[in-house]
Structures are given as structure tokens and as C-alpha cells.
């Protein structure tokens, strides 16, 4: 077990319990929460966990802020979509598309890293923001390849679609959709364990040293730029794989589901609230975020109606404004809980 976790124990009873709970819930989601809506949520949680964890690789371990993470996510998704579009529904198309997305993400990440990290780490945030938004515009303009604003629907092998049936297990009818879910689940679990391995390797420890004091790390003899560039590439490539899985699951890609600024903001919020530089923060943060998204919105809706007679208050409490409160929570957590939920649970500051 510890080997699988690369020796990185949760180091908190509550955290271990939470993680086990989330793992079990996701592993048996089709049996525990039947219905396509909840399966949809479970798959989304799996993918977002990997996406957020790969972002944490960069932000939490590298101390670098990127706004292009969804761009890499999108590269994986569009890679699969375009390959399936050109080559027809087959596993070869999916594999080739994912590979193409992976390589493209790696190369672009390397170029961006070399361009900006060479100069100043803060340029990275600005440059990635500019590039990501330019790419988003480009994707919506190149509709011949990408389907433009409408996005594109994927044709995937029949065994992964709801139309495919293969008997019952524990009273649940196993469809292609459920097989597809397990593809996503295993893929995400594997990617997460790989990332745990990375951050607990000597490479990960050097990254932490760089985050704490880049100048000192450079003085000891580590090439800071090289390490940061490698971290950028790894993070981008894992995001691309997560994107490929997401595209296969949704059987659809579009600019808003994969490239949007909103998704980028969500990732940022989850990493910080979950706990930067912990990996497990991505798991806990995502689970709480997705639940809060549903639960909090309902609560706000109720409060908003209850206060409808008052001026302004109902507008502030409207469910559409939940991002407002999340933003406030985000700022407060950067000030007061810089290590997020996981840091709190571990009792470190």
C-alpha cells in the first residue's frame, strides 16, 4: 500500500478516512449511485482530480502559476476528437489521438517554459494567460478542424457506449457506459499514482527546494530553469491525458468544456482550497468543490428567496453568484490557510 502511494502517507487520520471514502465512492460509483447523472458527476470528479493534481505539480511543487493548464487539457481532448473524426471509431484512433495530444502538449509546454521561465517566473503567469486565450480564440475560428464554437461529437468504439450491453452484476445492468466509466476511473487512478511517484522522487524534492528558495537551489548546483521546464512539461502532458479521457467519456469536445477560463478558475480555486503542494489536496478539494457546487447553490437559492423582500441581499445570494462567495473564500484561504484543507488536517501551517 505504501509502495503504491510512493511512501507519501496521508499523515492524518481524518484525511486518510476522507481519501478512502472518496476512493471507495468513485470505485463503486455505478453500484452505489445508479443513474446517469450521478455517474456523470463521478466521472467528472475523476478527471478533475487528475487535472487539478497535475496543476498542483506546477503550482504547489514548482511555485509557478500557469493559466494555460486548460489549454493542455484541451489539446488532449481535441487530439482524440480530431483523430476519431478522421480515422473513424476505433481504439487505434483514440490511442493515436491521445498520443498526439500528449506530444503536442509536451512540445508547447516546453516552448512556453523556455520562452518565459528563462527570464522571470512571473512572466509565466502572464504569458500563459495570453497564449491560452489566443489558442481558445484560434480553436473557435478554425472550425474546419475543431468544429468551432459548437465543438465536435466523438464516435468511439461501440463497447464504450450506452448501446452496448453485457449482462448484469449485482443487479446492475453493465452497459458500455459503465465500461467507459471504469476506463476513466482506472486511467485517472493510474495517472494520480504516477504523479504521487513523481513528487516523492528526488525530482520532486528538488522542485520543493526550488519553490522554497530558487536562488539557493541554483547556488547548490541545480539548474532551476531545467527543473521548472520539466515540471511544466510533465504537468502539461498529464493534463493532456486527462483531457483525452474526458473527451472519450463525454463523447464531445467544445471550447467551453475544455478550454474555458471558468474551468481554469475552478482548477485554481480547488488547488488552493484543497491544499497546494500536497497532491491529496486535489482529491479532497475536488470532491468538496463538486459537492459544494451542487449543495451551496441550492442553499443560496433558498436564502435568496427567503430574503427577496430586502434590497441587494437576494442579488448577492442568488445561486448565479456563488462564484462571488467562492472568490471571497479563496482570498481568505490564501491568507489564513495557505496549505489548504489538507495542510489543516495535517496540522501544519
Amino acid at each position: 500500500m505504501m509502495r503504491l502511494l510512493s511512501g507519501d502517507a496521508p499523515r492524518s487520520r481524518v484525511l486518510a478516512l476522507l481519501l478512502a471514502l472518496i476512493l471507495l465512492a468513485l470505485a463503486f460509483a455505478p453500484f452505489l449511485f445508479p443513474g446517469s447523472r450521478s455517474l456523470e458527476t463521478a466521472a467528472r470528479i475523476c478527471v478533475v482530480i487528475v487535472l487539478v493534481a497535475s496543476y498542483d505539480l506546477l503550482l504547489g511543487y514548482g511555485g509557478i502559476v500557469s493559466f494555460a493548464h486548460t489549454m493542455f487539457f484541451g489539446m488532449g481532448a481535441y487530439g482524440v476528437a480530431i483523430a476519431a473524426d478522421r480515422m473513424g471509431p476505433g481504439y487505434d484512433a483514440l490511442a493515436l489521438g491521445a498520443l498526439a495530444g500528449l506530444i503536442a502538449a509536451g512540445i508547447v509546454a516546453l516552448l512556453v517554459a523556455l520562452l518565459s521561465l528563462r527570464v522571470r517566473a512571473i512572466f509565466f503567469a502572464m504569458i500563459t494567460l495570453a497564449i491560452a486565450s489566443a489558442v481558445a480564440v484560434l480553436v473557435s475560428q478554425l472550425s474546419a478542424y475543431t468544429g468551432g464554437e459548437d465543438g465536435m461529437n466523438l464516435r468511439i468504439p461501440r463497447e464504450l457506449t450506452p448501446a452496448f450491453r453485457m449482462g448484469e452484476v449485482f443487479g446492475l445492468r453493465i452497459t458500455g457506459k459503465i465500461l467507459n466509466y471504469y476506463l476513466v476511473f482506472t486511467g485517472c487512478l493510474a495517472l494520480f499514482l504516477v504523479m504521487l511517484r513523481i513528487v516523492n522522487s528526488p525530482f520532486g524534492r528538488v522542485m520543493l527546494a526550488i519553490r522554497e528558495n530558487a536562488f539557493r537551489a541554483e547556488a547548490i548546483g541545480y539548474r532551476v530553469v531545467v527543473y521548472r521546464a520539466v515540471a511544466t512539461c510533465l504537468s502539461a502532458m498529464i493534463a493532456a491525458l486527462a483531457g483525452s479521457l474526458f473527451a472519450i467519456w463525454l463523447r464531445y469536445v467544445g471550447p467551453s468544456t475544455t478550454l474555458g477560463m471558468e474551468l481554469m478558475m475552478d482548477i485554481l480555486l480547488i488547488v488552493v482550497i484543497g491544499g497546494m503542494g500536497t497532491m491529496y489536496g486535489a482529491v479532497v478539494g475536488t470532491a468538496i468543490f463538486v459537492l459544494a457546487q451542487n449543495y451551496l447553490k441550492e442553499l443560496m437559492g433558498g436564502l435568496s428567496e427567503a430574503t427577496s423582500a430586502l434590497p441587494l441581499i437576494p442579488d448577492l445570494l442568488s445561486p448565479d453568484r456563488w462564484l462571488l462567495w467562492l472568490g471571497v473564500l479563496f482570498i481568505l484561504s490564501v491568507y489564513f490557510f495557505p496549505t489548504g484543507i489538507v495542510g489543516r488536517l495535517r496540522g501544519t501551517r
Binding site: I122, L268, V272, L312, L324, L326, G327, Y335, P338
Partner: peptide
């Protein structure tokens, strides 16, 4: 701390943008 500045001002941006909606 540049890292915190980027995060916190981004949070401020989100809040301000939402206030415009309000």
C-alpha cells in the same frame, strides 16, 4: 510573494467581476 499576489489578486478579480453582475 509573487505567488500569493497572483492568487489573491485573481481572487479579487473574481469577486469584483461578480459584484458587477450583482
Amino acid at each position: 510573494s509573487h505567488l500569493k499576489q497572483i492568487l489573491v489578486t485573481m481572487g479579487g478579480l473574481i469577486v469584483a467581476e461578480q459584484l458587477i453582475y450583482v
